[in-house]
């Protein structure tokens, strides 16, 4: 990781966290990116707290310091607590996370470790716990969060650590 940003941010801040990042240098994709991001959180069958479990596990896998430090306020309102966030770490299987939350973490790990060779047992567990709509939404959410976290890492300028901070969804 590098502490030096590899691309500059837009010259004129807009007040939108994503538009004011280096992503704002590609305005042609910005509106659709922001819209898609909001749909991931607001339009799906999963609660924001469940979506946040996927996002935070992804943040750990990518080791995106920024992503790890953020908590979306809608997830907190939906029941996410720091106690539960701490359970998303390596010992999640033996934690107090729900069966659904543990499977969300397992799917994130499968996405990174071996997306092309999911075991029949994990498939069966996912199928028993989630609807097809939920699994489709969750999979696209994981892919979206992965792209964002890896973007943040690849662009550089990441500090060594950040305090936990609650934020709202960027407008889109």
């Amino acid at each position: 990781m590098t502490g030096k940003p590899r691309a500059h941010n837009p010259a004129a801040p807009s007040g939108n966290m994503i538009a004011d990042s280096a992503l704002g240098l590609v305005p042609e994709t910005l509106a659709s990116y922001l819209h898609y991001n909001r749909m991931i959180w607001e339009e799906g069958p999963l609660s924001p707290a469940e979506v946040e479990v996927a996002r935070l596990r992804n943040a750990r896998r990518v080791n995106c310091v920024f992503c790890k430090s953020v908590r979306y306020d809608i997830a907190i309102e939906a029941g996410l607590t720091e106690e539960r966030v701490a359970m998303i770490g390596e010992g999640y299987r033996d934690s107090g996370l729900s069966a659904r939350e543990k499977l969300i973490v397992a799917l994130v790990d499968q996405y990174y470790d071996a997306p092309g060779s999911m075991s029949e047992s994990l498939r069966a567990e996912l199928d028993a716990e989630f609807s097809a709509e939920e699994l489709a939404h969750l999979s696209l959410a994981i892919a979206h969060f992965s792209g964002f976290s890896r973007c943040a890492v690849a662009l550089g300028g990441m500090p060594e650590e950040l305090p936990v901070m609650a934020i709202s969804l960027p407008d889109g």
Binding site: A7, L23, T29, Y33, F148, R150, A154, L155
Partner: peptide, 9 residues
Amino acid sequence: LVALIEALG
């Protein structure tokens, strides 16, 4: 560079 990183994601 930003477009490339976004695309790769």
